[in-house]
Design a protein around this nucleic acid. Structure first.
Lengths: 351, 351
DNA sequence: CACCATAAAGCAAACGATTGCGCACGCGGT
DNA sequence: ACCGCGTGCGCAATCGTTTGCTTTATGGTG
C-alpha cells in the first residue's frame, strides 16, 4: 500500500538506485535526472521507510531513554518533565528521535537495556540512574553501546556522564545559611541510596566543618522523595529538643513538604525557619514565601546529555568516558530571610 | 559484531529458519531441537534485531506519541507527566514501545506525522491535540493509520478519541458553587482555542442558566495556560466593580495563580473567595488551603488511549472511530468553603 | 519390497532500502 | 582508427528476519 522507492523509480523511469542517490544528494546523478526524480518524489509524497534504512545503515538515528525503575515516583517530580524537555529539544535539533523503554513487562532493567541495544533500535542510550549501585551501570560498561549517564558524578564510572557538582551545591547552600548566622541547620534528604542525597549531604557536612559547626546526626533525616517525605522529615526535626533554625531540603518538593509541616504547627517562614531547596522548579518562584533554592539547570542537564551522546555516536570510535558538570547557582528568594537585607535578624533567633 | 540468528544457527547446528521457529514457538520443531537451540540462545545472550523483524513483519510494536506544537508550555503542566505515565504504563503492559516524535526540525506537525507513519516506525499514533482546529486532525483522517486522540470530544472527528466530558465537568463544578449559595462566579480559562476551555465554559454557562443566574461576560477571562495566567486573570476579576464570590479555574495551575493573586491583595481563601480547579494535580491536595478540584483522571486518559489504540492495531481491520469518556469527580477540599459544613457562611459574604 | 503419509528441518524469496562495482556511452588525445 | 577516461546510471549483494514451499528421513501399510 505505502509507496516504496521502487514505485518512485518506475514512475520516474529510473532505477531504485538512482532514486536512492537522489535522496542522498549524490553528485554522480545528473541535474536533469535529479530534478525529474525530485518531482516524482514530491508528487507521490514519498517518505523513506526508516526501518529498511536502519537495517542497511546499521543505525537508526534514534536515542533510547531509560528511566529509573522507580518510574512512577519519578514521574511525579517536576525534575522529570524538565529533563525530558531538554533531551527532547536538543535531540530534535540534531535530527534524532527518541525511544522510550517501556516494553517487556517481565524483564528487569538490565534485560530492557540489553534488548533495546541489541534490537538495534537505538544508536545510544541516556540513562537516568539516580541510585548509588544501579545494576544497569555495571552492565552498560560491559556492553559497548554509546551511553551517557545523567545524575552521576564523573569518575564514578567508566561511562560518560553529566551531572551537577552536587557536593559543591550542598556546600554552597549550607554556606549561605551559615553566613546568615545559622548554627543549627537541618538537612532533609531523599533516600540514602540516591546519589544526589549523598553528595549534597557531603557538601553540607563539609560546609559545617569549614564553618566550625559541629555536625549533628540528629539534624539529618532521610525520607521518601516526595512532598510527604519533606513533611515527615520536618516534623521529626521540629520534635527535636533543640530545633534547627534553618533547613536544607535536597529537593524543592521536599522543601514544600517541610514548609507545610512548619505551617501546620503555626510557624512562619522565614521568621521562624529559613529554608533552602534544590532544583528551582517552577513552583518555587510562586510559593508563599517564594523558595530560596539551588538552581541546578535541569534543562541543560538533559540538553548536555543529548549532545554528548550524539557526539559520541557520530564522532567517537569507541566510547568516550568524558564527563561534564553543569553549574549551579543559588536563587535567593524569601524563604531564607535573606531576600531583604534589613530583616536578617535570623541570626539572632533562639535556638 | 552483534550476534545474529545465523550465528546461533551455526552454533546449534541448524538452519536460521529453525532458530526463528524456535523463537516463535512453532510446534513443527521437535522438542529436542527446540531445547538445544534454546540453550544456545541463552548461552549467546541472543536478542533479535527488531529492525529486521519490523521490516519483514511490517509492524513494529511501537506506538508514536505526538505532542502539541506548543510543546514547551505543555511540558510545564503536570498534566503531561501524568498522561505520559498512563500511556507508558499500559503500553509496557501490552508489550508495546513508545516513540516520541521530535526529529525533523524544519517540519511542521503534519509532516512530522506523515514521516512517522510512512517511515513505518510506528504501528499507530496517540495525538495530544488540544486546540480546536488542529491541522493534524484533518490530516490524520486522510491517512489511514490507527490513531487515538486525547482531549477531543467524541463526534468532533472521524478518529477514535478519549476525553472527559468537559462540559459536564464544568457544569458540575459550577453547580457545586451555586449550591453553596454563590451567585457571582468568575471563570478563569486558558486560551479560547483550547477545547477544554470551551467545553468547561459551556458547562459553566449551562449551570448558570439552570440556576437562574445571569451569565456575565465580565466574569469570564481567558489567559495563558500557566500559573501566571491564573494570576492575571484573578487580578482582572478582582478589579471588577462587583467582584465574584467564587472562582472556577479551568486548570489547577490557573487556580494556584488565582490564589496567589488573592493572597497578595490580602484576601483569604475560602473566607473571601471560593475556588475550584480542574485536574487534581498532586499539589492540589497539599496547597494552602487544599484545593477543591475536579479530578479528571488523567492517568486513565493515557491508559485508555493506549489500550484503545492497541486494540485498533490488533483487531480492527480499518480504523475504529469509537470514543470513550473518562468520568470525573469533584474532590471537595477546603478552597471552596464546603470542607467543613459548619463554615458554609460563604453564601452570606458581601459581594 | 515398493509406496506413500507424515514429521522435521532446510532453501530461498521476500521486506525496502543502500552502495560497490561494472557497463555503456561520448569525447578528446594520439 | 584506437585507446583511455570520466560521466551517468543500473545490477546485484547486503542488512537480519520470517515464512511458503521443498526436501529428506522415517515408519507404516498394501
Amino acid at each position: 500500500m505505502p509507496i516504496s522507492i521502487k514505485d518512485v523509480a518506475v514512475k520516474a523511469g529510473v532505477s531504485p538506485s538512482t532514486v536512492s542517490r537522489v535522496l542522498a544528494n549524490n553528485p554522480r546523478i545528473s541535474p536533469q535526472t535529479s530534478e525529474r526524480v525530485r518531482m516524482v518524489l514530491k508528487e507521490m509524497n514519498y517518505h523513506p521507510n526508516e526501518i529498511a534504512r536502519s537495517l542497511v545503515r546499521q543505525r537508526s538515528r534514534t536515542l533510547g531513554l531509560i528511566l529509573p525503575n522507580a518510574i512512577d515516583q519519578f514521574f511525579l517530580n517536576p525534575f522529570f518533565p524538565e529533563v525530558l524537555r531538554g533531551i527532547s529539544q536538543s535531540a530534535r535539533k540534531l535530527g534524532y528521535d527518541l525511544f522510550l523503554s517501556t516494553a517487556s513487562q517481565g524483564l528487569n532493567d538490565v534485560e530492557r537495556l540489553d534488548q533495546m541495544v541489541q534490537s538495534k533500535r537505538v544508536d545510544g542510550v541516556i540513562l537516568l540512574t539516580v541510585k548509588l549501585d544501579d545494576p544497569l551501570l555495571k552492565h552498560v560498561q560491559d556492553t559497548h553501546v554509546p551511553a551517557v549517564l545523567i545524575g552521576r558524578s564523573p569518575g564514578q564510572s567508566m561511562v560518560a556522564s553529566i551531572n551537577n557538582d552536587n557536593k559543591r551545591a550542598g556546600y554552597d547552600a549550607t554556606m549561605h545559611l551559615l553566613r546568615l548566622g545559622h548554627q543549627r541547620i537541618g538537612f532533609i534528604g531523599g533516600s540514602p541510596e540516591l546519589i544526589l542525597t549523598i553528595d549534597r549531604l557531603a557538601g553540607y557536612a563539609q560546609a559545617l566543618s569549614d564553618g566550625n559547626v559541629r555536625f549533628d546526626p540528629q539534624l539529618v533525616t532521610s525520607e521518601e522523595f516526595l512532598e510527604e517525605g519533606g513533611y515527615t522529615g520536618m516534623m521529626k526535626l521540629l520534635a527535636l529538643p533543640t530545633r534547627p533554625s534553618a533547613i536544607i531540603a535536597s529537593d524543592d518538593v521536599l522543601a514544600f513538604g517541610a514548609m507545610r509541616a512548619a505551617g501546620e504547627l503555626g510557624y512562619h517562614i522565614p521568621q521562624d525557619f529559613a529554608i533552602v531547596g534544590f532544583n528551582d522548579i517552577p513552583l518555587a518562584k510562586i510559593a508563599n514565601p517564594p523558595l530560596t533554592t539551588m538552581n541546578v539547570h535541569i534543562f541543560e542537564l538533559g540538553e548536555g546529555a543529548t549532545t554528548m551522546l550524539i557526539d559520541q555516536i557520530a564522532n567517537r570510535p569507541g566510547r568516550s568516558t568524558e564527563s561534564q558538570i553543569v553549574p549551579h547557582d543559588l536563587i535567593i528568594r524569601r524563604s531564607c530571610g535573606a531576600w531583604n537585607p534589613t530583616n536578617n535578624l535570623l541570626s539572632h533567633l533562639p535556638q
